Simulated scan of single mutants.
Amino acid sequence: MKIGLFFGSFNPIHIGHLIIANTMATSTDLQQVWFIVSPQNPFKKNSSLLHEFDRYTMVERAIADNHKLKVSDIEFSLTKPSYTIDTLTILADKYKEHEFVLIMGEDNLVQFQNWKNYEKILEFYEIYLYPRPNTPAHDFGNHPKVKFVKAPLLDISATYIRKRLQEQKNIKYLVTDQVEAYIELKKFYI
């Protein structure tokens, strides 16, 4: 099976993430998309980062009705911060029957050369890119392993959602009803 891996903090998962994942799962040769919940991104501070199990639960609730989308906790047992190449290697070894593709926003290519062993990622894995607003020029657009996928151009961020919650403003339609209910239940981001 050809599986797209969508890495992220998902703090919280929002409609933009879901639209991208569903577009990849239904408009490309991918049979499934797995959300890889990252305990800690090496490029981000984790000051407002919820516990990984809570973020995992939100992803699980958000995708419960879509059999093409799955969630993985593979990085929870890895050294923090986790690096994409290490996770890809572990998944490829654990699931030899699958072919894995990295899904990422075009904006990530701008700093892609700073990723651990980015050359190995390009050597062994395809990258399916979705457009991101105002992305500066980068050197990887013509790489044979990089494929651009037409997807809606969305500018929704988890940071924006957290800020709205801190200001006690409504987040309806930015996250699924299930995620909104879980955030309210746990009083997250207040």
Score class of each variant (00 low, 15 high):
Ile3Ala: 12
Gly4Ala: 10
Leu5Ser: 07
Phe6Cys: 05
Phe10Gly: 01
Asn11Gln: 08
Ile13Glu: 08
Ile13His: 02
His14Lys: 03
Ile20Cys: 08
Thr23Met: 06
Thr26Phe: 07
Ser27Glu: 14
Gln31Leu: 12
Gln32Pro: 04
Gln32Ala: 15
Phe35Gly: 01
Ile36Asp: 00
Asn41Thr: 04
Pro42Ile: 05
Pro42Cys: 05
Ser47Asp: 14
Ser48Gln: 08
Leu49Ala: 12
Leu50Trp: 06
His51Pro: 03
His51Cys: 00
Glu52Met: 05
Tyr56Thr: 08
Tyr56Asn: 02
Thr57His: 11
Val59Trp: 07
Glu60Asn: 09
Arg61Thr: 02
Ala64Gln: 13
Asn66Leu: 04
Val71Ala: 07
Ile74Lys: 07
Leu78Val: 09
Tyr83Trp: 14
Leu88Ile: 06
Leu88Lys: 01
Ile90Val: 15
Asp93Leu: 13
Val101His: 11
Val101Ser: 06
Leu102Pro: 08
Leu102Ser: 07
Ile103His: 01
Ile103Pro: 02
Met104Tyr: 01
Gln111His: 09
Phe112Leu: 02
Phe112Gln: 01
Tyr118Val: 02
Glu123Ala: 14
Tyr130Asn: 10
Asn134Arg: 12
Thr135Val: 08
Pro136Ser: 02
Pro136Thr: 05
Ala137Trp: 07
Asn142Met: 08
His143Trp: 13
His143Gln: 08
His143Gly: 13
Val146Ala: 09
Lys150Met: 10
Pro152His: 03
Pro152Ser: 00
Leu153His: 06
Leu153Val: 04
Asp155Lys: 14
Ile156Leu: 15
Ala158His: 04
Thr159Arg: 04
Ile161Ser: 10
Ile161Cys: 05
Arg162Trp: 08
Arg162His: 00
Arg162Val: 10
Gln166Glu: 14
Gln166Arg: 15
Gln166Ser: 15
Glu167Ser: 14
Asn170Met: 09
Ile171Pro: 11
Lys172Leu: 12
Tyr173Val: 03
Val175Gln: 06
Val179Tyr: 04
Val179Met: 09
Ala181Lys: 15
Ala181Tyr: 10
Ala181Cys: 04
Lys187Glu: 14
Lys187Ile: 05
Lys187Tyr: 09
Phe188Glu: 05
Phe188His: 14
Tyr189Leu: 07
